[in-house]
Design a protein around this nucleic acid. Structure first.
Lengths: 197, 197
DNA sequence: GTCTATACGAAGATAGAC
DNA sequence: GTCTATCTTCGTATAGAC
């Protein structure tokens, strides 16, 4: 099945990118990991590695974004952002601190060879930010402040994943989870006070 | 001169790692960029690429850490953290959004081949965090809270560099600079209030 | 649509001349 | 201490059989 082979390659690349990055992962490893022959790569991804990387970014963005979107219903912004960070802590810990964010890896390594991938990455990061910002806006936080807090949250989580890998400990993610919750709650509280004036 | 050649190679690797990452940078490019012959690599770095990467992490950590340490004298924590983010924004913008943090790149890519590099990276990140935390502690912020705010700041800046590269805009860094300044000022203000009770 | 085989260059690493 | 030359493995990419 074509779709099955293609999907298995994307999923293998996704996993390997998280562990070794974009340049550090070769087709040889992707082929071995997915069980799909090396030569089949260019059947599914005519433009080569950049083509595959784009689909990996989409998959990574969707996987996290869908979880966030599902969690966003019915919880307050502070709980949402804390869960966002906690989910990454869980991810990093279960992979023994040897896996990070595939999108971040591609952004940091592909700009020279395939600059167009930055747009796809920005698009997926944008969705994460929009989900957080909307959760804040629903509680009355002004949209500009909601947007910059959402950016802070996504940036802090991406950075804390790197710090956690370096330290081989989830503490950086645990710390920022608490701080982000506080910042989100303060913004909601501030919006409520302003409204009741 | 030996030290000169070695230093030039480290500086070239430093620059190339920021643009293309650790795996994406070969000795061929480092040699061409630094003007030092390829074969000389193993004279200066007997353990090879990991050896070189360790020195790159040290250089990157020192360069940023020294700037922060110099700035920390005589300014309040909010101004310090804002300057930290603004410095990175300047860096990313002057490199046309094609360069990020060398330490983050090495952490994200080297864990499989050279796991020991994570310790060096954690060490350098730790210094940045300590400078920020101490600035807060000097203003009376309890050390635990100072530490987690410092972690938030370093994580947010590292993540915002990635977001900025993806978007080809400094806005993520500008946004978190403002938010971090607010968080730092709120912590200092809170510490003052608690002390005057 | 998926495989084997292979092209060609670059990767990291080493040996030995100077 | 720095160079040239070279080894082996792996990189991306292609051609063509089935």
């Amino acid at each position: 099945m074509a779709a099955d082979s293609k999907d298995r390659m994307i999923r293998s690349a996704y996993q390997l990118f998280r562990e070794r990055g974009y340049s550090g992962t070769g087709f040889r490893e992707i082929s071995a990991h997915s069980g799909v022959a090396k030569g089949a790569v260019y059947h599914h991804f005519p433009a080569g590695k950049a083509d595959l990387a784009e689909q990996v970014i989409r998959l990574a963005g969707r996987e996290v974004g869908d979880l966030m979107a599902a969690a966003a219903d019915g919880v307050d912004p502070g709980t949402l952002v804390e869960g966002f960070a906690a989910g990454w802590a869980e991810h990093v810990r279960t992979h023994d601190f040897a896996a990070g964010c595939a999108i971040a890896a591609v952004v940091s390594e592909s700009q020279h060879d395939a600059p167009q991938l930055a747009r796809t990455a920005a698009d997926e990061f944008g969705r994460w930010r929009a989900i957080l910002a909307e959760s804040l806006a629903r509680q009355g936080v002004p949209s500009e402040h909601a947007a910059s807090l959402a950016t802070l949250a996504v940036a802090a989580v991406e950075g804390a994943v790197i710090l956690a890998r370096a330290e081989r400990a989830t503490q950086p993610l645990d710390d920022i989870a608490r701080e982000l919750r506080k910042s989100f709650e303060a913004a909601v509280h501030g919006a409520r006070s302003a409204q009741s004036k």
